[in-house]
């Protein structure tokens, strides 16, 4: 990973067992917009897809896991680099259905 060279993406390493990771860039957006952007992207993806949101809003770190719980998705990881939170979600089966 420390090689100096052209930037590579997941497309350079096609592997049917590793799903593509979509990234939603919500840096600079205030709550609830990071969650809304994330949900909008999630709507177009199939169950099992993995989706990462980048956010600087301090509420996102709490609200992305809460959204995932309410929508039946699973948190895959979270870390912070400076003031940028990187929150990754694996979509469940209920992507487009609302609970009553």
């Amino acid at each position: 990973m420390n090689d100096v060279g052209p930037a590579r993406t997941a497309d350079d390493f096609p592997d049917p067992d590793i799903p593509d990771i979509d990234v939603v860039d919500a840096r600079g957006l205030r709550c609830p917009l990071p969650v809304i952007r994330l949900a909008a992207r999630a709507r177009d993806l199939p169950p099992g897809a993995v989706l990462t949101v980048l956010a600087t809003d301090p509420a996102a770190r709490h609200d992305v896991p809460a959204w995932a719980r309410m929508r039946g998705h699973a948190m895959q990881g979270e870390d912070v680099d400076g003031d940028v939170w990187r929150l990754t979600v694996r979509l469940g089966a209920t992507t487009t259905t609302r609970p009553p």
Binding site: R30, P32, P58, A59, H62, D63, P65, A66, W67, M70
Partner: peptide, 16 residues
């Protein structure tokens, strides 16, 4: 700009 530390500690939605 920080959400309620109470809602955050509970792990519930802080927005809205």
């Amino acid at each position: 700009l920080e959400p309620s530390h109470v809602l955050a500690a509970m792990g519930v939605l802080t927005h809205g």
